[in-house]
């Protein structure tokens, strides 16, 4: 493990931690504007996290160790996963870091713990959230894997680092197929980060919530960790999309000036994508839960067709 890689580890973690709350707030801001409200400040998520850290944690007497370790495991898994997706600087991969399958399964690890924590307090809201989350993540999985397999084909590597350095070297879109894969990736992003039309991140109504239901019993610093972790997840999936489709500015050899440009460009591109997500969320209605499988089936067939026709023909 060379010094460049250590630098990357520190840098990537810091950038993801700094940028993640911003993107969450930006989506909220855009949604508020489209609804004719002025909305909270773009720094609101940072304030909320800081406030939550100062609050006490409340545990249910029914809850076990699962409830206590979940926020930590969730955060650790997402921070580890964050090292798999270079945001601004792509070094040479070391020891399997960047493996796309491992990345997917680190997210699954966090989800597994979260679903169990939802059940732990014995509240029916939590159970409902866990049940729905596990069902949805199961039926989106085939699409995710197919899209990842196509990425592996396009870039001839299983490693996200290699994919990014190929696309960064080109600076522009490597092949037009990526636009179509980008659409599939966008659908996966919407599903995996619990956004409309799959889930509604802003309600606490039992009929509509999935992700919020699972973390309903979390409080104080634990809730802060859960919120930050899901913001990181959003940022990572956004970065995957950005650095594959519009990679210009992504740095492969380290320079300070390059870092500054890459970081600014990443935040700008991320903000635009956050705006698109916000507009997308505002323009669709939340779907009824049992209508989702047909949406996913559509996403699946779309991705598979695209891949078979465009990529492998």
């Amino acid at each position: 493990m060379n010094s460049m890689f250590v630098l990357y580890l520190v840098l990537n973690t810091l950038v993801v931690l700094a940028a993640a709350p911003l993107f969450v707030s930006l989506i909220k801001k855009v949604k508020a504007r489209t609804q004719g409200r002025s909305g909270p400040s773009v720094f609101q998520t940072y304030y909320t996290l800081a406030k939550l850290l100062k609050k006490e944690v409340i545990y249910s007497p029914n809850s076990s160790r699962i409830m206590r370790v979940t926020p930590l495991v969730n955060m650790a898994a997402l921070l580890a996963a964050a090292l798999f997706v270079p945001l601004v600087f792509v070094p040479e991969p070391v020891g399997g870091i960047g493996n796309i399958i491992l990345f997917l399964y680190l997210l699954a690890l966090a989800k597994f713990f979260m679903a169990l924590a939802g059940l732990d307090a014995g509240s029916s809201f939590g159970g409902m959230g866990s049940s729905r989350e596990m069902s949805i993540s199961a039926i989106i999985e085939p699409t995710t894997i197919i899209v990842f397999a196509a990425l592996v084909f396009v870039f001839k590597s299983l490693n996200i680092f290699d994919m990014f350095s190929t696309s960064a070297a080109a600076g522009t879109l490597t092949t037009p197929v990526l636009i179509l894969l980008g659409i599939s990736l966008f659908i996966i992003l919407i599903v995996e980060t619990s956004r409309i039309p799959v889930d509604n991140p802003e309600t606490h109504l039992e009929l509509t919530m999935i992700h919020e239901g699972m973390i309903l019993e979390q409080s104080g610093r634990n809730l802060a960790l859960m919120e930050l972790a899901s913001a990181i997840k959003l940022t990572l999936l956004m970065a995957l999309l950005i650095n594959l489709i519009v990679p210009f500015g992504l740095m492969t050899t380290f320079t300070l000036a390059g870092l500054a440009i890459a970081a600014i460009l990443f935040v700008v591109k991320g903000s635009i994508l956050a705006g698109i997500i916000g507009l997308f969320e505002s323009s669709t209605a939340k779907m009824r839960f049992f209508r989702l499988p047909s949406l996913f089936a559509m996403a699946f067939f779309f991705s598979t067709l695209v891949i078979i026709i465009e990529v492998f023909a």
Binding site: N62, A108, F112, L116, L119, D120, S137, I139, E141
Partner: peptide, 21 residues
């Protein structure tokens, strides 16, 4: 892939129902 994700759901159910709440 579907199998793998469903097995996670299955063992959330098993562990959750047996040991939690």
């Amino acid at each position: 892939a579907l199998t793998s994700a469903l097995s996670a759901a299955c063992f959330v159910k098993a562990f959750g129902s047996i040991f939690l709440a």
